[in-house]
Amino acid sequence: MELRRPAPSPLVDNYVVPGDVVLDLSEMNNQTIKLGAGLRQECDTIEATSAGKLRQLKPNKYCIENSQKRYKPSVEDTVLGIVVDTKPDNFLVDIKGPNLAFLPVLSFEGGTRRNIPKFKIGTLIYARVVKANSIMNPELSCMDATGKAAKFGQLKDGYMFDTSTGMSRMLLSSPTCPVLEVLGKKLSFEIAVGLNGRVWVNAPAASTVILVSNAIMRSESLSGIKQRAMVENLLERLS
């Protein structure tokens, strides 16, 4: 039996709110549709359950992309966490989610009982979500899939600030974000972006850190062209 590609929803790339009917399934037959975050099936319709932009990821996969202050943990997300407590077997890390995340003491490169890392309360850590479940606390790891530390671990010095989850997604988007593109051409700095809406910036000069942080924070509600203009304006003031 031939599977036809489902017709895209007319609301794709439009803003939807809870209760909006995204797709009518009564008009479709023998077609598979995958539902991402913020969507649910109600009889013969697909309805939105949260406010945001409807995205079509694949020909048959839909999800709602929204910008929030709170973060919902998802497997393979890279996050910036703050150590809030230490236990014999794991660290308790705040990742701006509904629950605190566990970071096992052995989930570091070459981690054994003999060389357990010692993190003080308040330490900033760049980690990867390995387990995410609504019933259990999320689990983090400071290793990539191959067991190497890669870019994960403790972030020393620098400055960390909070943004929305939408902003952090924009900073990590595939064509480089206009703000980072313009700043990267003129200034030398390090940046770590967590999908949980936290950004860490480090640079040799404090003025650079302040400028980069302000530029990112201001750019949240601006279009690409306005972002470039704003960054150039900030750079002019610095020089």
């Binding site: 709110v17 809870p18 209760g19 913020g38 309805e47 359950t49 949260s50 406010a51 945001g52 929204n66 929030q68 202050k69 709170r70």
Partner: peptide, 11 residues
């Protein structure tokens, strides 16, 4: 609640 991104059946 909608602004906070809480899942709702409808407004």
């Amino acid at each position: 609640l909608a602004d906070a991104g809480i899942m709702m059946y409808d407004l």
